[in-house]
Design a protein around this nucleic acid. Structure first.
Length: 345
DNA sequence: AAAACGGGGCG
DNA sequence: CGCCCAGTTTT
């Protein structure tokens, strides 16, 4: 049986029941695809449900405040997705009367929608025969056809996209695209796939050549840097603290945090009070401090390891405008800080 | 072409 | 502890 037919038959028998599989509404499909970028279904599904519940239509999302959208996104990571999601919702509501573009080409123009997502929406919602190539597709195709071109360089990206397009079932673009992705997620898994029960095991090149563990080929991983973060948790006598928006580009843009002192090395307790930033920040106002965590909390991002200390600082009057402690939980914040808040307050 | 961008889960 | 995840944008 050919590759194509085998996959769609497998899909009809094994596909999981997922909330976004009950609809072809482009708003819902778009929302699910953005949430699922670089995100496993188990992690993304609760967020999808929360977003659909709070923002049933693109107009509801467009009318929200960005900080409210980020709060609902909190913990999911890659927060530019949430900012772009909101930007695109406003654009669709304002300039397209709430109607999504209905072609791959026009979908691609939306902020936060790249080749994969445009292909997914175009095929699922409108039946356009444009092939998705996500991590699952790279894995399935590289193994089945025995292709060792690196998947994260220009050559491989073009080669796999062309191959995927050539395999497209023009009569069932939606099912075909979802079938190959689901097959990658459930059967042709990254680690320890059970090739004994694979419906393609009689024609899989990687299996025949014992290359399942070698494919797909991925080029050098990005190196991880270490940073030292010191968060200043101010507590005034009138129950206020300083909690401010990260406005600069970089990680956690537009999320909230306590004032951050980043140091080259670990900041010792004995050196805290005399650190130039601290002495200047408090301008000799009397304060008492203690360290919340004796050992650094190591928060791991894909490209940074953040060695973090939370300094608890009790002071009569804040050196700048503050926020009542009761209000900080209403603001979006990185999971690193959210975990601290939940434990400390 | 390469780096930046989160957080969770798994072997 | 390294790899992977229904990738996109910026540099």
């Amino acid at each position: 049986m050919d590759f194509n037919k085998t996959l769609t038959l497998w899909y009809s028998e094994h596909k999981r029941e997922l909330p976004w599989r009950r609809t072809k509404n482009p708003y819902n499909i778009w929302l699910s695809e953005i949430i699922l970028q670089q995100t496993q279904i188990a992690q993304g599904q609760p967020y999808y449900n929360a977003f659909v519940s709070k923002y049933p239509t693109v107009f509801d999302l467009a009318n929200a405040q960005e900080t409210e959208v980020l709060k609902l996104w909190q913990g999911l990571g890659y927060y530019s997705r949430a900012r772009n999601l909101h930007t695109t919702a406003k654009h669709i509501a304002t300039h397209h009367n709430g109607i999504f573009p209905n072609t791959y080409k026009d979908l691609l123009k939306l902020k936060g929608v790249g080749d994969y997502t445009a292909s997914a929406i175009a095929s699922i919602c409108y039946g356009e025969p444009t092939a998705v190539v996500d991590g699952n597709v790279y894995r399935v195709l590289s193994r089945y056809f025995g292709i060792d071109t690196p998947i994260n360089a220009t050559d491989g990206i073009k080669e796999f996209k062309a191959l995927a397009e050539s395999l497209m079932d023009h009569d069932h673009p939606s099912d075909y695209n979802q079938a190959i992705m689901e097959f990658g997620a459930v059967q042709c898994k990254p680690k320890n796939p059970n090739c004994q029960i694979c419906p393609l095991n009689d024609s899989c090149v990687a299996l025949q050549k014992n290359l399942i563990d070698q494919l797909p080929v991925k080029l050098k991983k990005t190196k991880v840097s270490t940073k030292y973060f010191n968060f200043l948790v101010l507590l005034s006598t009138d129950k206020q603290t300083i909690f401010q928006k990260r406005v600069k580009k970089g990680i956690w843009q537009n999320l909230y945090q306590f004032p951050l002192l980043e140091t080259e090395k670990k900041l010792k307790i004995a050196d805290f009070k005399n650190h130039p930033f601290i002495s200047r920040y408090f301008a000799n106002a009397p304060f008492e401090f203690s360290l919340y965590n004796n050992k650094d909390i190591i928060h791991k991002l894909s490209h940074q390891h953040l060695h973090t200390k939370f300094w608890i600082i009790e002071i009569d009057q804040l050196p700048q405008k503050g926020m009542p402690i009761t209000e900080i939980k209403n603001h979006p914040t990185p999971i690193l800080i959210s975990n601290f808040i939940d434990d400390f307050f």
